[in-house]
Amino acid sequence: MNSNSRLKVFTTPFNSGNPVTVLVLGICSALAVTVKLQPAFVMAISVTVVTAFSNVIISFLRNTIPNSIRIIVQLLVIATLVILVNEILKAYVYDVSKQLSVYVGLIITNCILMGRLEAFALGNKPIPAFIDGIANGMGYGIILIIVAFFRELFGSGTVFGIQVIPESWYVTQGGFYLNNGLIILPPMALIILGCIIWIHRSINKDLQEK
């Protein structure tokens, strides 16, 4: 595989092969962790790391895995990696692991991982598989962060936990503004996601079905 096609492997997930907006993978976690930017950011990084390394491991193993149990083997690799990451975080960066808590478990069920293992790692060499994992994790992460940005801004009036909308605007302080409680709930994430897909498709005409 030459550097040109490697570059293509890297760029596809950001545009015509985005895991969330085009392949519609990982929607569940995109709804669950996007109330605030911080968890979304951490989730994005964790998924990137786990996708990349599980891709590499499966790619190394790809010629040995019996076809009938390949899904189980993939799951085993993902789950092992996630547990290892969790244990290491707990031991050395306890504060981070506390923030992650539930999300670490959610990584195992993230469809992107299985999707990439099935679609890419089983048929490609380790290095492209690694690039593919990183790129897909990032493509997923970008969407997550965009959604989380809008949800945190309008739902809590903050960005990364910093108050952006002036305190004096709020009704409780005698102002006119109220946080939008609806946007904190999962359905609004789906609507924001829908808008992103809409914008994405109107920019990239190739994605529109005729």
Binding site: V33, V35, K36, P39, S101, V102, E152, G155, S156, I184
Partner: peptide, 8 residues
């Protein structure tokens, strides 16, 4: 808490 909803 262990797993309450962030933001809520």
């Amino acid at each position: 808490h262990e797993s309450e909803t962030p933001g809520l």
